[in-house]
Nucleic acid binder design. Structure first.
Length: 395
DNA sequence: AAGCCGGGGAC
DNA sequence: GTCCCAGGCTT
């Protein structure tokens, strides 16, 4: 790319933003960030012990933690990580585990495809790589569930390889440091950010540097109200210099959230004190997990959902909600909302006695099991159905 | 390029 | 209530 002849002083083409920090800035950012991180970092179970930041870590721990940390905050992951490593201490034990058992350890964490991907990834490593986790980015990228962020994280944090990473934190920090007014979600924005990340990651202790970037984003350089006064690289931050920290990166566009009304049938066999659970299909939301039979109450629609009380629309399900409220077979026992990122579920919970009417609810294409509430703990259930089970146990 | 996929922490 | 998080896969 030729430099602009009309701006000979600039070190960037005139038609592009300044995407490369100067060498002096890069040196200072690395130095300050390293010093700050070693002094202030949190102690996390997949990291080396405090004060031993350059000590080797188990790449398997990095692998598991990075899968769990995709789109998930550190504080949420910690307890799941401990239980997971306790049950599956190494790549072989994970590879030979039953998928339902892996899902059960993921229960409540969300984005359940990650669990199945991690399981498939472990099996692939055992099969293709003699149970040794690959250390180079390209080999890692070929494994299921590993994209360029996770590949770079495993290579740098787990093996000390020089590899850039860009997650939500790094994207925000680099946007601010370079004052990049781009959409960090867009391909163009991501290209620019990855380019900066590639320049800035050092040869020496790249894992410490990458961890430091994410730590900074999680604790100081937050989306709102960043604590610039405490930031080790505030003097290298162009957004700070331009007084644009609050507008970079640009907030993403908000979306309308559809409301989905569903009815959950807790079908009880009084003789055995067993309850009916059905398995969800192998794809889509909560894939492969088990639930109390649930059916849509009304077609999804968007609406203002600010009311506190559960108000259900006119039912069009086969049994009719009015019937469900009043009959001897069906009894309304509660309702609650469950918010996902792109949907709001409004659940009505009904207890049903096992019989012909309740049998009509079941989808013949879905596997079912009749279990005591206690025994149902052996199955992976989505969060709303964990809640339903607690409702039944409390009765 | 856009949609899909959970749940919760922090405010 | 809001925003968004140690993203990747599918279409």
């Amino acid at each position: 790319m030729p430099r602009s002849a009309s701006h000979p002083a600039r070190d960037q083409p005139a038609d592009e933003p300044a995407t490369k920090p100067t060498e002096a800035h890069v040196r200072e950012i690395r130095t300050q960030l390293d010093r700050w991180y070693r002094a202030h970092r949190r102690d996390l179970p997949w990291r080396p012990p405090p004060g031993q930041d350059d000590a080797p870590v188990d790449p398997y721990h990095v692998l598991v933690s990075e899968f769990m940390l995709q789109q998930t905050q550190v504080s949420t992951v910690i307890s799941y990580f401990h239980r997971f490593i306790h049950s599956f201490p190494d790549i072989r034990s994970l590879a030979k585990a039953d998928e339902q058992e892996v899902l059960r350890h993921w229960q409540g964490l969300g984005y359940y495809r990650r669990a199945r991907m991690l399981h498939a990834c472990a099996r692939e490593i055992v099969k293709q790589h003699e149970s040794v986790i690959p250390s180079d980015v390209d080999t890692l990228l070929a494994l299921p569930g590993i994209g360029r962020y996770t590949a770079g994280a495993i290579a740098s944090l787990g093996f000390g390889r020089r590899a850039p990473i860009v997650d939500g934190n790094v994207a925000r920090i680099l946007s601010r440091i370079q004052c990049l007014d781009v959409d960090p979600q867009s391909p163009a924005g991501l290209r620019a950010i990855w380019a900066v990340a590639s320049e800035i990651v050092p040869e020496k202790s790249p894992g410490v540097f990458n961890s430091a970037m994410m730590e900074l984003g999680a604790t100081l350089c937050t989306p709102k109200s960043p604590r610039c006064a405490d930031c080790p690289v505030s003097h290298q931050c162009r957004a700070r210099e331009m007084n644009r920290v609050d507008s970079i990166p640009r907030p993403r566009a908000k979306r309308v959230v559809p409301v989905v009304e569903r009815i959950i049938y807790c079908i009880h066999d009084a003789r055995s004190d067993h309850w009916c659970l059905e398995q969800r299909p192998p794809t889509g939301r909560w894939a492969g997990m088990w639930q109390f039979p649930s059916r849509e109450l009304i077609a999804s629609h968007t609406q203002n959902h600010t009311h506190k009380t559960i108000q259900f629309s006119q039912a069009n399900d086969p049994l009719d909600a009015k019937h469900a409220r009043n009959s001897r077979v069906f009894k309304l026992i509660g309702g609650f909302d469950h918010a996902l990122t792109h949907r709001l579920y409004r659940f009505m919970v009904v207890r049903a006695l096992r019989g012909r009417a309740s049998q009509a609810i079941l989808d013949p294409d879905r596997p079912t099991k009749w279990l005591s509430l206690d025994d149902s703990r052996s199955l992976p259930l989505p969060r709303p159905h964990l809640r339903v089970r607690e409702m039944l146990l409390a009765r």
